[in-house]
Amino acid sequence: MADDKTPTRTRVVLGEVAARGRPADRTRTDLAEQTPVGEALVKGLMRAQLALALRLALVVVTGLGALPLLFVAAPGVAEFKVFGVHLPWLLLGVLSFPFLLAVGWAYVRWAERNEQDFVAVIRRPER
C-alpha cells in the first residue's frame, strides 16, 4: 500500500496550501475517499451513462433486430423494390451502416455531455 510509505519531503509554499483548500475540492475529496456523497455521485453518473447506452441499444434492436421477424411476418415487404433493388438488400447491404454510425454519433455526443455535467458538479464552487 502507498499509505505506509514514508512520505517524501516536500516544500510547502503558502500558495499551494491555499489552492488545496479551495471549497470546490471538497467534492473531489468525497470522490477520492469514497464517502457516501462521492459514491452517490459516481452511481449517478453510471446510471446516466448506462441508461443512455441501453436506450440507444434499444433503438438498434428495434431498428435492425426486428427486420428478420418482419420479413417472415410480412413477406410482401421483402419483395418491395426501390430503384430496382429489393428492399432487404438495400436495408441490410447499404442503409444499416449509416444507421449504426448515426446511433454511435448520438451516443458519443450525449455520453460526453453526461461527463461534462458530472465534472461541472464536482468543480462547482460551494459558496
Binding site: A53, L56, A57, V60, L64, H86, P88, W89, L92, G93, S96, F97, L100, V103, G104, Y107, V108, A111
Partner: peptide, 24 residues
C-alpha cells in the same frame, strides 16, 4: 444471398456494442 448480409452488418455493429458498453 440476402440472409448472410447479417455477417457484414454484425461485424460492423459489434463496434457499436463496444462503443456503447465497453470502450471508454
Amino acid at each position: 444471398g440476402v440472409d448472410v448480409l447479417w455477417y457484414p452488418v454484425g461485424f460492423a455493429a459489434g463496434y457499436l456494442a463496444l462503443l456503447l458498453f465497453v470502450a471508454a
